[in-house]
Structure formats: C-alpha cells, structure tokens
Design a protein around this nucleic acid. Structure first.
Lengths: 259, 259
DNA sequence: GTTTGTGAACAGTTTCACAGCT
DNA sequence: AGCTGTGAAACTGTTCACAAAC
C-alpha cells in the first residue's frame, strides 16, 4: 500500500504510473546484481525473471521511462542502472532520520541497504534520556528535544518512525512541522498529515493477517468453518434467502486454488 | 503490498478482492480501538476516517463480506470485529516461526502486536550456534538444524524470514519443504516458491526509494526546496542532455548507449 | 432524516500480440 | 532471426450517486 491521505489526484498526464514506480527499485536491485557480475546487456525476459515479474510488464514499465533498449539485443545494464537511479532520485543523497531506537529502530539503523544507495542516516533520535549518547550502528543516539534542529541543520526531508504506536502521531507532527515531507511509518497507526506530505507504512501485523487470510482459504476448502456465529445485535438473521442475497456469514465456498 | 505470489490466474470468481483483503486488517484495528472504548456502533464515515480511507470504499469493501450494517444507524462494532476476524482467519491460532534472529528478527520477536491477534511465535531459529539456547523475547533460540522438526511438530504454516539476503532462498526452500505455505520475507531478495505458496515481502529500501521518487518530484515541480541538494556522486556526463530518446518530459535526443 | 448497499461510470493496471527495428 | 515498444483488450480497483431500509 502506500500513501496515507493526501495523494495527488492522479494527475499523471506526464508522470510514471504508481505501480511502475513501485517496481523500479526491484529492477534496480536486479540490475545492480548484474552490473556487479559485469554482465553488459540483458533481455527483458532475463531481467524480468530476476526481478520476479513478467517480461511484458517490465517492457511496459520501461517504456514510461523512455526507449532505453535495443531491439534484437536487450538493455544495456549500466545505462539502465543510471536511468532508473536518476528517475528515482537516487543520484542525490537523501539524509534520513530514524525516530524511536528500540529493537526495530536499531535494526533499521544497522540495515546495510540503507546507506548503500542514496540514503544516509543523518541521526537516530529517541525519547528516552537514558539512550542519549549511546552509540547505535556507530551513531550516537540523540534526544527528541533536538529533533527540530537536527532536521533543519541537515536538510532532512525523509523521516522514519519506529516508535510505539502511541507516540507516532506526535512524532509525525513534529517531523512535518520541522520540514519533513516524506515519512516511512513502522508504527501500527494511521498517521494524518497535511497535504503534500507522503506517508508509506510498513506493518508486520497487517502482512501476517493477509497471509492468514490466504492460508485459511488453502486449508478450509472442505474443513468447514469453526464455531458458531454470534447473533447480530441490531438485525435478524437473514440466513434464509434463497435468491439474490449472495452474501452471508456462512462459507463462501469459492472454487479457489485449483490444486 | 506485493505478494510475490506465484502466478495464479486469479481464479477468484466468488472471493474477496485482494485490495479489500489488504484493508480488512486496517478496519479491524480501528474497530478494536472502538471496542475498547465501548463504542457500540459506528457509521461508515466515522470508521473510514479512523482507518484512513474514504467511506465509499469502506462500504464497498464490507459489501463483499455481507450485509452487516443497519441503514440509518451504522455498523455494530462487536459484530463487525467478529466477522472480520473470522474472514481473516484470526479466530484460530497461527503458529509462526521466525528465522534469522539478528537485529530485525529480535525486533520482530519482541513485537507485541504479534501475539495479540491470532499469531503465536512457535520458535525463533538462527544459524549461528552461538545463539542457540539464548533467550530472546522469552524464547530460547533454536538452531537451524531443528527447523524441519519444529515446523512439523508445531504444525507451522507461516514462516517469517529475517535472515541476510544470501541465506533467504535456502531458508525459504527448507521452510517450504517442511510444510510452510505462507512466507513473510524481510530479506531484500526475490524468493521463488512453488505454486500454492504465498510470499509477501517487506522491504525497507524499496519503500525509501519510492519516497525518494516522490520527494524528488516535489522539489522539481514548484519553486522552493531549500537547497539541500548535496553532491552528486558519479553522475554521467549526459545528465544535462535530457531524459532520453522518447517523448520524455522534455527534449528528445537520440538514444545514447554508453560505451 | 440518516446511512447502508450497490449498479454504473470511471480510472488504473496487466496482459496480449504484433509491428517495427536491429 | 531476435527482441523491444506499444496500441488495444481484458481485468482490477475506485468513486459516484441514489434507491432502499431504518
């Protein structure tokens, strides 16, 4: 998923489709790996396989960037790496702050892929005074009091929130007030931000729940639904309904997963 | 987002749209909060605001589950909590293993929201023998050798991979061979899995790159942007020449392949 | 009067299949 | 021959707007 509220009204007459943007990093990673193995060119078929998509989609995606391939040959790896990097804005350096240096914040700070491409951890910030000064991933943790000055002094426009849910909105507000316009939120909360600020969220429990949904489908084709449905407070059981009303709490029994 | 799911022709004639499934956990979280405040009913408008979506979408989403609201009134909170939980498969318990107990794995193990709803950490697994037996989040870390027996003994069908990228595919293969059919992958790699296995991935650096894309765009379109554009690493000389050969945003220049 | 549930219109995304370049 | 680039078709997802239910 993506941006919280406040997304441009898809006024994308001149832009790249959002779905394509979301795949460019994937292509870039695959291309970087090829580049490191000194592979000079790659076909849409090969690159698509490496990125885990199909080749028609990949070609369509690239067509939004320009005609960067050569018919009968494929794509030049180095050239594509550069073009995609530029398109994603990775030819410049993005200072990032991480707020909330608990288990997760520390993990993020230590994450190598962070610095590797365009991003630089400008500061680690935590509300706990006991954390202040302690080094994490080679950086001293700074106290929340310094948040605003850190942001302005470093020209930070991207913030990562790894605090408990209860603190997230407040931290978000302060980040935004200080000038941050893109936020990556790991806290399990819906953040509200003013127009013009992008929010992306990463949420473990949502991902697990989506997996559970599909898992249940796989298992439950014949194994029934457990338990009974508690009666509905305001309404009557509509379970009867021979026609029309296609829904109902009972099994949906779709023909899914053909072996 | 981003199921790396194996290509299924979406045989879902009678199922719930994927986009809807992905939002159900969001609704559930908002409803749970209302439930804890003993709010008895909620309108689509209110609930939508709490979940960060618009009300038409929410009503459409719920319509796939059934007619669970009351016109003129709204939705009964407790009843909806139950229905969504059941739909997501959270009325049963899902044992989960986490493989790779580094910074991130430990963070995940400690994540409270894990156990809170339907999920239970059955085991923490790491390849480092020095880790074996050490308690993390109250559980002793087990060695990778035990992976298969842990999976089968506990009937684990959901696995979380938090290993380095290099180990992820191998771990994935072992998980799948042992019976896991849903995987949440935190390693920055494309996993390949057999038909019938679901993969979802969470990738920090992809999220950041997407943010950078939009951030760059903000800086470009309107005026402003307080400098904050440090050095450029190894930008190619052609940078000034415009985007590419096609009808890009600006000048059209014949394709230039780098030597 | 209020609010749901939903067909219909619209928008975005993926896939197909092939023309056109190398 | 091989492979890209892209219109058109097919599909999925979102928004609109209003009749039906309370």
């Amino acid at each position: 998923m993506a941006t919280g509220r406040t997304h441009r009204p898809a006024t994308r007459s001149r832009g790249i489709p959002e779905a394509t943007v979301a795949r460019l990093p994937l292509y870039l990673r695959a291309l970087t790996a090829l580049s490191e193995r000194s592979v000079p060119t790659v076909s849409s078929e090969e690159l698509a396989a490496a990125a885990g998509v199909n080749s028609a989609k990949l070609r369509k995606d690239f067509s939004y960037l320009g005609s960067y391939g050569t018919r009968g040959v494929g794509y030049d790896v180095e050239y594509l790496v550069y073009q995609i990097s530029r398109e994603l804005g990775l030819t410049q350096d993005w200072p990032v702050v991480i707020v909330g240096i608990g288990n997760l914040g520390a993990a993020l700070a230590n994450y190598g892929g962070f610095a590797s491409r365009g991003f630089r951890v400008a500061a680690l910030i935590d509300a706990d005074p006991a954390m202040a000064g302690k080094p994490v991933a080679g950086l001293p943790v700074r106290h929340t009091d310094e948040l605003e000055s850190i942001i302005t002094d470093n020209g930070v426009s991207i913030g990562v929130i790894a605090t408990p849910a209860g603190a997230a909105q407040q931290v978000c507000d302060r980040l935004v007030a200080a000038g941050v316009t893109s936020i990556l939120n790991f806290a399990p909360t819906v953040l509200s931000v003013p127009e013009g600020v992008d929010v992306r969220k990463v949420d473990l429990s949502i991902e697990l729940q989506i997996l559970a949904f599909h898992e249940q489908r796989k298992a439950g084709e014949e194994t029934t639904q457990p338990a009974a449905t508690p009666s509905r407070p305001g309404a009557h059981a509509r379970a009867a309904a021979g026609a029309g009303s296609r829904k109902g709490p009972d099994g949906d029994v779709p023909a899914v997963m053909p072996a």
